[in-house]
């Protein structure tokens, strides 16, 4: 009698454990997957607990996937890196039938060749946005029209860019009027960046860094991500996000499931939750990047930063979306960037 009771309790416990998983998510810190109210609601709806872990660069994310197999169930990957992660068998094809909201994703993104290989989806388009510049409205009563403002001696020592070789080089390509995915004149990019160096206060590394420097008044103008800008504005920082005449760099972030995950079903449920319009509309209030889900954008109020960005076709025409980068080019950019930094 006693024994059977224990057995029954154990069984019930095991059944409960199977239904309620703990899924581990790998993402940038403060980037949508770790919002307290959302995770509570998700746990209430599905029983799954979500634990977030963070990376500080795409390379670190890949390193973590390689060195900790089985440790993560959902990973946020910039679409330019999805092909690499797929080629290394780090991520698995996703059963989109398990993700009801997948049908509402903007077709351009859902069928993006960076995410779909041989008809199989390796990354669910989640959010997209722009890498451009943001200015301190105190230093700029009117937003600048051109990227040249970063080279303006009036702002010397009050400019910043991210310490990232690829972003820096592509930004240099924009400033020199080149195609960021097919840079013909790398010397021009090098010279342009070399002349930017004396203008810089420091490099920024993370959104948190950026906010602190901006709040302390260290920067007048700095490169920034549109999603982060929306968040910083929502937090009350006096900044404006600007897409200058030269254009901006576009990126697409997607959610993938690591090959080594043992809780793929729960992972798919979480991804569905992340692209759900209901979640997005609330997230947008706190400052979110632009959703890849067309229904989610429709559901936004007309005054929303993201609806305005999306609704401006003129702006979108100036965006150059990042394509996957070959290892050789990445290496070349890294060397160029390291040499520029070493010369300081």
């Amino acid at each position: 009698m006693k024994l059977s009771l224990i057995a029954a309790t154990a069984l019930a416990f095991a059944a409960h454990a199977a239904a309620a998983d703990e899924i581990r998510v790998l993402n940038w810190q403060g980037y949508g997957t770790d919002i307290g109210w959302s995770l509570e609601a998700f746990e209430a709806a599905t029983g799954h607990k979500v634990v977030n872990e963070y990376f500080n660069s795409e390379q670190e994310m890949l390193t973590k996937l390689r060195t900790n197999p089985g440790a993560y169930d959902v990973v946020m990957i910039n679409a330019a890196f999805t092909a690499q992660a797929m080629a290394e068998d780090l991520i698995a094809p996703i059963d989109t039938a398990a993700i009801p909201n997948f049908a509402d994703i903007t077709p351009n993104f859902a069928g993006d060749s960076k995410l779909v290989h041989d008809g199989q989806v390796y990354g669910v388009p989640w959010t997209w946005g722009l890498t451009s510049i943001a200015v301190n409205t105190g230093a700029y009563p009117d937003p600048p029209a051109s990227l040249d403002t970063m080279w303006d001696p009036a702002h010397q020592g009050r400019v910043s860019i991210r310490d990232d070789a690829v972003e820096a080089v592509q930004f240099g390509a924009l400033a020199t009027g080149q195609d960021i995915n097919d840079i013909q004149d790398l010397d021009a990019v090098r010279d342009k960046l070399a002349s930017l160096m004396p203008q810089l206060r420091t490099f920024w590394g993370s959104e948190n860094d950026w906010n602190q420097y901006m709040a302390a008044g260290e920067f007048d103008v700095a490169t920034y991500w549109s999603g982060s800008a929306a968040r910083s504005i929502a937090q009350g920082l006096p900044i404006a996000f600007v897409v200058p005449a030269e254009g901006a760099i576009g990126w697409l972030d997607s959610l993938s499931i690591p090959e080594s995950s043992t809780r793929k079903e729960a992972a798919a449920q979480f991804i569905d939750w992340m692209i759900d319009p209901e979640f997005y509309v609330k997230w947008d209030l706190e400052g979110a990047p632009t959703s890849a889900n067309a229904k989610a954008i429709e559901a936004l109020p007309d005054t929303s930063f993201n609806k305005q960005v999306v609704a401006d076709p003129d702006l979108l025409a100036r965006v150059q979306f990042q394509a996957p980068l070959s290892d050789e080019d990445r290496e070349t950019y890294l060397k160029l960037w390291q040499a520029l930094k070493a010369a300081q």
């Binding site: 500080n56 660069s57 390379q59 670190e60 890949l62 390193t63 390689r66 160096m197 810089l200 206060r201 420091t202 490099f203 890294l334 390291q338 930094k341 070493a342 300081q344």
Partner: peptide
């Protein structure tokens, strides 16, 4: 160090944590 803070040690760190 900010902009002038690139040293031999930071490059080693980059190789381990940033570019793998």
């Amino acid at each position: 160090g900010g902009r002038v803070g690139t040293y031999y040690g930071t490059v080693i760190e980059d190789q381990f944590v940033a570019v793998y």
